[in-house]
Amino acid sequence: MVNLNVNIGKLALKNPVLTASGTFGYGEEFSDFIDLNRLGGFIVKGTTINHREGNPYPRMVETPSGMLNAVGLQNKGVDYFIDQIYPRIKDVDSQIVVNVSGASIDDYVAVCEKLAPLDKINAIEVNISCPNVKQGGMAFGTNAAGAAQVTKAVREAFPKTLIVKLSPNVTDITEIARAVEAEGADSVSLINTLLGMAIDVERRKPYLSTITGGLSGAAVRPVAVRMVWQVAKAVNIPVIGLGGIMNGRDAIEFMLAGATAIEVGTANFIDPTVTVKIVDYMNEYCERHGIKDINEIIGQI
């Protein structure tokens, strides 16, 4: 029997498999396909203080081994989440992490204060890295001072596990990671999407209404693995790795690079059962390599 339990700060996960925010809805969307209780946890859609309509259609275009999206944090706001969605999903036997976004520090703090009393929400993932919103989002995540400022404010508002999601659209991601660690983040997750762009040459127009968008999918994986490896060496808090994980092999790759847990994103769109297949693969991989505890492989490179 292989041990797959890992810890992210005070957050205990039954296995390292999480789902990336914005790719798994609120979990319910996938309950016809998989047993949600088998996941380490799932990270629900980016939540803001007020309802957001997001960006105009078209918001998505496929690119080689990937896709660009420009959803723009469409969500019904934190109160709707607490009143309508949370009661429906709270009894699941895996961790629910809420991804929090804001246009100002006050917004982030207000959302965190509302989430903190919820029994089942033992962790939040603070998104300082969304490339698809005009205000806030990535603006905080692309310099160390902004990232530190958000982390400090949120740390005071949310006593449970605090994960900060980092943007890859920076010169030195380790500098940002160290800055949020210094302000009390329990973990960092990376990478959010890479800022990208695609043009329809026949129509001579960009594919996305916002012109640029966030690139995800297998195409970004080598960049993500490299950044996880760099950050894991630079900080002492656990790192959560994501970016183009399509299968169990890819998940192990991130763990070898230094990730304590992983998030599966775009792959959920292609195979809604991929997350449980990754859990199965982790068991099988560890048995095949004579590993009794998956924590042994974290950061072997």
Binding site: G22, T23, F24, G25, E29, F30, K45, G54, P56, Y57, P58, R59, M60, V61, M67, N69, V71, Q74, T266, N268, F269, P272
Partner: peptide, 17 residues
């Protein structure tokens, strides 16, 4: 027939106003 990714309401890509 808006462009879709997931088809199950998770990605919010295929929205119509």
């Amino acid at each position: 027939e808006n462009m879709m990714a997931c088809g199950v309401g998770a990605c919010l890509c295929c929205v119509e106003n």
